[in-house]
Amino acid sequence: MTGDTLLSVDDVSVTFAVGGLAARMAGRPTSIAAVAGVSFAVGKGETFALVGESGSGKTTLARAINGLQPVAGGSIRFEGDSITEHSGAAMKPLRRRMAMMFQDPVGSLSPRLTVRALVTEPFRIHGVEGRDMNAETERLLSLVGLNMDFADRYPHQLSGGQARRVGVARAIALDPALIIADEPTAGLDVSVQGEVLNLLNDLRERLGVSMVIITHNLHVVRQIADRMAVMYLGRLVEQGETEAVYTAPRHPYTAALLSANPEPDPDLARDRITLPAEVPSLMARPNGCEFHTRCPWVRKNCRTEAPAAAGEGDRRFTCHYPLQPGERPPKTEERVHA
């Protein structure tokens, strides 16, 4: 990361209560850690991507950053203020500086409000007065590439891409320092996806806003993120500069994700790192390195000893035996079995 830190997340955990008295009596776990010991930082004007499958804890982490989800441990600081110490009303001024774009582009817009009412709603929520709402509507719509003809439409009259643009307009209304975008292109086809990503890249340059993008689309990450982190079972297993991670992944899960990414050519020779499809449950986290149940490179101590985060500077990975560039999984018979 270069420049000033805008957001720093330090050893954050989020837990949910599960089961009840019956589970407690039976000795089953009564809480699960959806996010466990996550640390990263986002600089001013930087785009940071969080990658991982559904259920890996990405959205929970985003909600914790926004103060929508209490944390069980660790601290989150935004523009020098601690989010983890604030709650309820005290969060409101912080949320002005930190906008959230939720997953479903149409579902996240109230169906009974016009586009005009939707893009100016942030001003009303935060009691910003003395502005010409008509001028603001025009300014925001033009920033996201929509003309004033859209101002009086309702969400159901918008296409998926247009609804996403309205979502972006709402997010930038109060001139935030950070936008958290949860799956900003999910459900959009490739041409509209390109439009939305171009828009986000453009706004970053024009407004200098930082972004945290949550996605499981690796092609998107490469096009938009300066730095990225890979999540597995609620932990960050690898993070670093996007190009560096793509060029030489150090954690086996990252390497498998990148090699699995389907490419649009029916005749491509595919040289994949295949993983067993059984993802462990958060109710029963594996011992040792939590990836060892699926790791093609697993060695004896991976099953018992949890690896510490290693690496230098921004580049961090949590693996006992980080991969060398181009390293291939060992043949089954060569693997060391415990």
Binding site: V190, S191, V192, G194, E195, N198, H219, Q223, T242
Partner: peptide, 18 residues
């Protein structure tokens, strides 16, 4: 449609095709 697929770009591009 195929031109717009970011999977076809091998590296970062300033403007994605649309």
């Amino acid at each position: 449609l195929f031109e717009c697929d970011p999977a076809r770009l091998h590296g970062r591009s300033r403007m994605l095709p649309t």
